[in-house]
Computed example of a mutant assay.
Amino acid sequence: MTNPPAQQQPYPGETGPMDPQPRDEMASYVGRGLLEGKTALITGGDSGIGRAVSVAFAKEGADVAVGYLSEDADAEHTADLVRREGRRCELIRGDVADEAHCTAMVERTVRELGTIDVLVAHAATQAPVDDFAELTTEQLRRTYEVNVFGVFWTLRAAAPHLASDASVIVTGSVNGLRGNKSLIDYATSKAAVMNLVHSLAQHYMDDGIRVNCVAPGPVWTPLIPATLEKDSVEGFGGQAPMGRAAQPDEIAPSYVFFASNKLSSYYTGEVLAPTGGEIQAG
């Protein structure tokens, strides 16, 4: 991937204006039936990593419910990609910062698709600050309502509906592992949900439900030009040891690995960190 030029767009961001276009359709990915007959709910599934995961799951045989905030065109395109694989796709619009919406999203998934075999809590938001003293209570609440409360509410609502061998996957971040001097509330919110993974993995051990985390490094998605200043977007990802950001298609196979009991039956409470070569302790 060529490191991107300076650019910016309104929040929450769309794929269309991005330069270069992200690789997020899993075009060269060949499924092996790893999720045949399964159903998945993916929050933040309209674009970027969420889109790539939605398509990969469909190629592996799963029906998919895609939760998204307001990016209708991106969501419709993702649904089209899933349906091209002969799988069902339900689009569920709304804000995971709303507890009632999280419950309704889960209930609609179960009503339309049946049980939930795979739950991916991916929806998140971020907003950098130059000075910690400038971090407003409004921003702090919004970040935590989306990134932490939304994950808690979605997982709690889904718990009674999870299949006996279900897989829960939470999206963390390299920033949750090592902090970030300008994405302070975002980094701490990701640390919180990564600890939730460790806790729920223990909680559900005897039930056969596995709970894991994917914690990527820099990935070229609409959230980047929608939340960072132009100068920060220019060359985004160049700080990674590989010298570039990841494409969403490069991250999605991590979710397939955790989703499939054939591949990861002995994995729970784990954090898989595709960071482009940044070595993590632990």
Rank of each mutant, 00 (worst) to 15 (best):
A192Q: 00
A192K: 03
A192L: 02
A192R: 05
A192D: 08
V193K: 06
V193S: 00
V193I: 14
M194E: 10
M194V: 13
M194L: 04
M194T: 14
M194W: 09
M194D: 00
N195S: 15
N195W: 11
N195V: 12
L196D: 02
L196E: 05
L196S: 04
V197R: 02
V197E: 04
V197N: 04
V197S: 01
H198S: 15
H198R: 15
H198A: 15
H198E: 12
H198Q: 15
S199N: 10
S199L: 09
S199E: 08
L200T: 12
L200W: 15
L200C: 11
A201K: 07
A201W: 04
A201S: 12
Q202H: 12
Q202C: 11
Y204W: 13
Y204K: 01
Y204F: 14
M205R: 15
M205I: 14
M205Q: 12
M205V: 15
M205N: 07
M205H: 15
D207P: 01
D207T: 13
G208S: 11
G208P: 02
G208C: 11
I209N: 03
I209R: 08
R210G: 02
R210K: 05
R210C: 04
V211I: 06
V211W: 05
N212G: 14
N212K: 11
N212S: 14
N212H: 10
C213H: 04
C213R: 04
C213Q: 07
C213Y: 03
C213V: 08
V214E: 01
V214F: 03
V214T: 05
V214P: 03
A215W: 03
A215F: 05
A215Y: 05
A215L: 02
A215K: 10
P216F: 06
P216R: 06
P216E: 01
P216A: 10
G217I: 07
G217F: 00
G217Q: 03
P218H: 08
P218C: 10
P218K: 10
P218V: 09
V219G: 08
V219Y: 07
V219H: 10
V219C: 02
W220E: 06
W220P: 02
W220K: 12
T221Q: 09
T221A: 08
T221F: 07
T221V: 15
